[in-house]
Design a protein around this nucleic acid. Structure first.
Length: 294
DNA sequence: TGCCCCCTGCAG
DNA sequence: CTGCAGGGGGCA
């Protein structure tokens, strides 16, 4: 599900609840969702949460890390000891729902009786207990996080210069820049007025800077409004992913410029938004505003 | 560098 | 029923 802004929202929401909590139990309801030795988890205290791209690190006092990838439908939901789930205004029916439910894969219990649920309808996501060096090795294949100082306009342009692949598929490449997914790739290309099939190395320095600017802009803007909540997560359908740990949906979906708007009028020129597949993923763009290079 | 695949569930 | 969904690993 989540791209960088959604994972960042999870980190921001969970940090106050999880910090200094001591893990006393882990129940594994779906084996493939977890790897690592459970006994290295018990009795450990959570020190902090960090994020690289779409991966969330829950740091433990024994210098191990719970590395979390939510993939398409993963969710982390925190409940206090009274099992009171603090759910958002837009999802009133969820107040009646009890956890664990059919999508619950893991349940972490803390010494104060509170719980952290890892829900994941499609089972693509995972939680892995790793040492710090294992995490470093694992993340060595990731490019710089979009919100890190290393993600400079110069670095971005240099990466684009290195490939003749369609710029859209390059944006998805986590080994170059970590955090961009389908929503933000589509919308940033629209804002920069770049056709998604444009060979990356044919993009001018000017356009590259514009794209870099819009990427950072829409990501920061999305974080400001609580990230995107997918259509299939909105009330009254059951929540899966893209919902905050307290159940509140984000609001960025109301800002989608082209993503999931096939056939709808372009916000700038009213031309119907076109949809096509690029490396297996739905791609949305305005054929008038985003002309291919000649 | 594209494809198929991992899964579940919903819309058409 | 088919196609589609915020991801990405493995494989020619």
């Amino acid at each position: 599900m989540p791209e960088l802004p959604e994972v960042e929202i999870v980190r921001l929401f969970l940090t106050p609840s999880l910090k200094n909590k001591t893990i006393v139990d882990l129940k594994i309801l779906t084996q493939k969702s977890f790897s690592g030795q459970t006994k290295k988890l018990i009795g450990q205290k959570i020190t902090r949460l960090s994020r690289h791209g779409k991966q969330l690190s829950i740091h433990l006092s024994n210098h191990h890390i719970l590395l979390v990838h939510l993939k398409m439908t993963g969710q982390l939901i925190y409940q206090d000891r009274h099992q009171k789930t603090i759910l958002g205004h837009a999802t009133p029916t969820l107040n009646q729902k009890t956890l664990p439910n059919r999508s619950t894969r893991l349940v972490f219990t803390f010494s104060d009786g509170s719980n952290l649920f890892f829900n994941d309808q499609r089972k693509f996501g995972w939680v892995r207990l790793l040492t710090i060096s294992q995490v470093k090795q694992f993340q060595s294949t990731l490019g710089p996080d979009l919100l890190s100082p290393q993600f400079t306009p110069t670095y971005f342009y240099r990466q684009l210069q290195l490939s003749s692949r369609p710029v859209k598929s390059l944006l998805h490449d986590q080994s170059r820049f970590a955090g961009i997914g389908n929503i933000y790739a589509n919308d940033a290309l629209f804002l920069a007025k770049i056709h998604p099939l444009t060979p990356a190395n044919q993009i001018s320095l000017y356009k590259s800077r514009l794209l870099h600017l819009h990427l950072l802009d829409i990501i920061n803007q999305s974080i400001q409004v609580g990230g995107s909540t997918a259509r299939d997560n909105q009330y009254p359908r059951p929540a899966t992913a893209g919902v905050h740990p307290d159940g509140t949906p984000g609001d960025n979906q109301y800002n989608f410029r082209v993503y999931q708007r096939a056939g709808d009028p372009c916000l700038l020129c009213s031309t119907p938004i076109t949809r096509l597949k690029i490396s297996g993923r739905s791609t949305f763009f305005c054929p008038h505003c985003q002309k291919p290079l000649k």
